[in-house]
Design a protein around this nucleic acid. Structure first.
Lengths: 253, 253
DNA sequence: CCAAAAGTGTTGATTATACACCCATGC
DNA sequence: GCATGGGTGTATAATCAACACTTTTGG
């Protein structure tokens, strides 16, 4: 996926980037998958990328997720566009170079090997319009893999995010806001759970997302009345109590 | 606002356009302001434009509205991004040229005088990502003015729109859908009315938008409970009945 | 004083929340 | 049988829609 050529010659649409906010859920916590860039200094950046000339923007978002995190076939929603005139990664890149002075050395080959190689400085520091996507993934099903670009890629609790480059913290906030605001409408929170799940799982998820408690029986009614779930066989856990039903999203054809 | 230079040299962001859907309301009908292009043939196109390098996308949308329709200071909302790989105006432009063969004549000066001058054919027929904005305007306050680019600019009933170029009919549909879906949340429908209005005006507006009837008293309660309106003095119409209160949106500071 | 339309209060239905009960499960 | 947690039914509260009544206005 990497290229010897500078970004400006790889057939991308100019000045347009896609930023992906990947939400996961575990232990009653909402989490975001955040890569840490493989440079000296603390540089956390959302999985981002550009759009090929012959590629739908939705496909670009999926490709970026796949290449950067190893995650395939996830639920995706576009949530907004950030387009301030002064929005560029110049401040971030200059700070990065300052802390990684070897990058300006005449090691041209190495520069071009890194995707954000400083050979692309001019291209990269132009003003960028960013289309934001959020993804909802089953954190257990997915094993995020870092690329050469990343020193690490890790899940962070939503209330304990690292300080990120540019406006990426802001973008995460916008993604969360849109997710919560449209959740009832889209009924998409289930994508954060495993393929099958109990009603208790759903309730705990909702309680985490909206930060409030629900009554067990009424919650069950509300969810089932959406007719969005398929009831499966019971789940025998070995515990000394009635086995709960399992549910899943109906197979999409 | 026009330029002798081709579009590619005017400092726009490449392959990024803004399309504006301007909603108005009159005689219990929702309307959209649609310019008809000043060429032979029936070419209806949303007011569209591009984003300058040093310009916020929101500002660009406002500028496009102002330059193309004469409308200033309107309520604007970004609603989505259309980014299919095969999205370009090539089909439309070729049809336009076919019906306007004089455009390919060697009259270079005239070509460059028109904003969509065919001198820009290559630039213009590239794939474009479109950011959609919808505007809500007071149809009485606003007198749309056509530019040289337009043969006419006219309000069309939403249920009687002309067949438009590219995916512009689709974009209008998306704009309307988002408007309706977020209306309660944003409480922004009032921007379609005059500066002051009666509760009956509001009710008729809502009945038009949602295509259903409301009970007068309950509707009044619902609207007032939003606390979004300021009650003014009464409106004496001369009719032999109780004068209704006037309302307005509180002055924004 | 009357007709017309606006404003507001009151009732009834619907829906949402709280409470209660029963059921399955493994020890 | 009993403790535990799940499923479902019922009562209560709150919300929303329907009805009724009063007020204002100009003739």
């Amino acid at each position: 996926m990497k290229s010897q050529y500078p970004l400006s010659e790889q057939g991308y649409i100019q000045q347009l980037s896609i930023d992906c906010v990947i939400f996961g859920y575990q232990d009653k916590k909402l989490k975001v998958l955040v890569p840490k860039l493989n440079f000296k200094g603390e540089f956390f950046a959302l999985p981002s990328g550009f759009v090929y000339q012959d590629e739908d923007i939705d496909d670009a978002a999926r490709r970026i997720l796949r290449d950067r995190t190893g995650i395939q076939d996830v639920y995706l929603e576009q949530f907004n566009v950030t387009g301030k005139a002064n929005r560029s990664s110049k401040v971030f890149l200059d700070r990065l170079i300052e802390q990684n002075p070897e990058l300006i050395a005449a090691n041209v080959q190495k520069l071009n090997e890194t995707v954000s190689g400083i050979g692309d400085y001019d291209w990269f520091t132009r003003r960028f319009i960013s289309i934001g996507y959020y993804a909802l993934v089953d954190i257990n099903q997915v094993t995020a893999q870092k690329t050469d670009l990343d020193e690490s890629i890790q899940w962070y609790d939503l209330d304990n995010l690292p300080s990120m480059i540019m406006d990426h913290n802001q973008i995460i906030g916008d993604a969360l806001e849109t997710f919560k605001l449209t959740l009832d409408q889209k009924a998409n929170a289930f994508h954060l759970l495993e393929e099958t799940f109990t009603m208790k799982d759903v309730q705990e998820l909702y309680e985490t997302i909206f930060e409030k408690q629900y009554a067990r029986n009424n919650f069950q009614k509300k969810i089932l009345e959406m007719n969005a779930l398929e009831r499966m066989e019971k789940k025998f856990t070995g515990a000394a109590n009635k086995a709960p039903y399992l549910y899943r999203l109906p197979k999409r054809e």
